[in-house]
Design a protein around this nucleic acid. Structure first.
Lengths: 147, 147
DNA sequence: CTTCAATTGTTGAATATTCAATATTTTCCC
DNA sequence: GGGAAAATATTGAATATTCAACAATTGAAG
């Protein structure tokens, strides 16, 4: 049983392809659900990370929500306009900006969390409890080993 | 052991997030390797799908390589300019366009395959043979259950 | 047969992302 | 302390992606 694909194997046997496909599929599902609130997936991630109440710098946040710095800056601009989050200059290090959620953002985040959890319940239902847990474990481990 | 995350769980416990993170990571690695040939990951996918020698319509291809139709059209335009692929009108159904790889495209595809396989070998090395196989199996199953 | 709906692919405008350059502040080192 | 290098965030131009509209062809219904 050969583990890595051969050079002429179909693309569907490559890990990178399977990850892309699964990610695309699941992300689409979530996107569809969050559309009810008119919010892209990335904004849910941002709100969720910020809802620990602590201020997060743009760099931290970019890493956490899987966005490049300039992309994040522009998305935050929109969210500030929508009064979902706000910027505060970090007093300890004035190069940094600390991001916080507003009350409006918190309320929205709660509604989004509910939609996201319901999606995941739906996945667990059709995909199975055991598989989901195991898949998560393997993904975490892959992410850990990829550094 | 609760399977779906609670509404206040950290985002890192969501399947959708783990998939996005893993995909981003692995895709970056591959991107870096393919940069040696100056080719984006999507073009490798296209070349690989087309290298079965059969003509593929744009719709088929878009599904197979995980791209939207207009995005694919424009990427194919570039690849045609680079003489990697070419279009043929489908004689059976003149709405369709059949895509084929050129010899130049085939040669490039071979070099890209080698880079991709070497990446996957590297993953198997650090992540483990068993884990890789199992992860692939679970991803396939997830994709299958998501329809 | 003919008309109307559905399928397929492309285009152009609007939007979003990325890359390189910039400004600001901090850190380091002499 | 003073000046060079590093870290942080933003900006603007270049690039890429997406959405909606379109053109062409086929299928289907009457």
């Amino acid at each position: 049983m050969a583990k890595p694909p051969k050079e002429n194997s179909p693309i569907t046997e490559h890990l990178t392809y399977l990850l892309a496909q699964a990610n695309r599929e699941i992300n689409r599902q979530l996107e569809t659900r969050l559309a009810k609130e008119g919010v892209p997936v990335e904004q849910w991630r941002i709100l969720k990370v910020l809802s620990d109440g602590n201020g997060h710098s743009m760099g931290e946040l970019a890493d956490a929500v899987l966005l490049n710095h300039p992309t994040l800056t522009k998305m935050i601009d929109r969210m500030v306009s929508d009064a979902l989050v706000y910027r505060v200059q970090d007093p300890k290090d004035r190069r940094k900006v600390l991001m916080f959620v507003s009350d409006r953002g918190k309320a929205l985040c709660r509604r989004l969390n509910s939609l996201a959890v319901s999606q995941e319940e739906h996945i667990v239902e059709s995909y199975g409890d055991k598989s989901t847990t195991e898949l998560k474990r393997l993904l975490e481990s892959l992410i850990g080993s990829a550094n």
